[in-house]
Computed example of a mutant assay.
Amino acid sequence: MNLKTKIPNFEIRFATEKDTKLILKFIKELAVYENLLSEVVATEEVLYNSLFVKKQAEVIIGEYNGEPVGFALFFHNFSTFLGKANLYLEDLYVQPQMRGLGLGKSLFSALARIAIERNCGRLDWWCLDWNEPSIKFYKKMGAIPMDEWTVYRVENEALEKLSKELDE
């Protein structure tokens, strides 16, 4: 997909292997914005393997005047209630100097098109509670918060311990 958008000089394309370094750069820029840079342990090698060898996720890149200015990383999850796959957006990022031009909305529109073309039931993502600008943006697009759900996570030592429960 190489998608011209309604925004002059803005195109969206699927990432290729040569974009691995750029994807990591965008991930780190997003982590700085979210005050989570210390949690980024991804490397170019890990991303390359995950995205282009194992194909565990996909990335679209937004380019303005031919220069990369944002990305969205997504993958399929599955709804048992719908009986079909959905798109799950892990991260969407537009560089600060490019915000307010509609580029983020165009990236969301591209994701919606991918979801429709793949017969997905919905597009899901998380947002940090403190991120009011993004929350307002999402609601303006018609997104609804899933306030009645709580996200849970098992990681690190707890994940390791849980995995060994079968052995005991």
Rank of each mutant, 00 (worst) to 15 (best):
L92C: 14
I23V: 14
L36S: 15
K84M: 12
A15P: 07
E155W: 08
E45M: 07
E168W: 12
A143F: 03
K136F: 03
L73E: 08
G62R: 08
L73D: 04
P133F: 04
A42I: 06
M1I: 09
V53S: 06
V151S: 12
L36M: 15
E168C: 06
R113P: 00
T43V: 10
E168D: 14
T43Q: 07
P145F: 02
G104Y: 01
N156K: 14
M98A: 07
G102C: 03
L3V: 15
V53P: 01
F74Q: 03
Q95V: 09
L24G: 06
A115L: 02
L36T: 15
P8D: 09
E29L: 12
A158E: 15
P96C: 04
N35P: 07
E165A: 13
W149C: 01
E157R: 14
I12T: 00
D129G: 12
T16S: 11
L47P: 08
N65S: 12
T20E: 03
L111T: 01
L107K: 02
M141S: 02
A112Q: 03
L82K: 13
R153P: 05
K25H: 11
G83T: 05
E168M: 12
L159T: 02
E160P: 00
C120K: 05
N131Q: 09
K84R: 15
N2F: 10
M146G: 10
W125D: 03
M98D: 10
A158D: 15
S50C: 07
E44V: 07
P8M: 03
L92P: 10
F108Y: 14
W125G: 04
G121I: 05
P133N: 06
E34P: 05
S109K: 13
W126I: 13
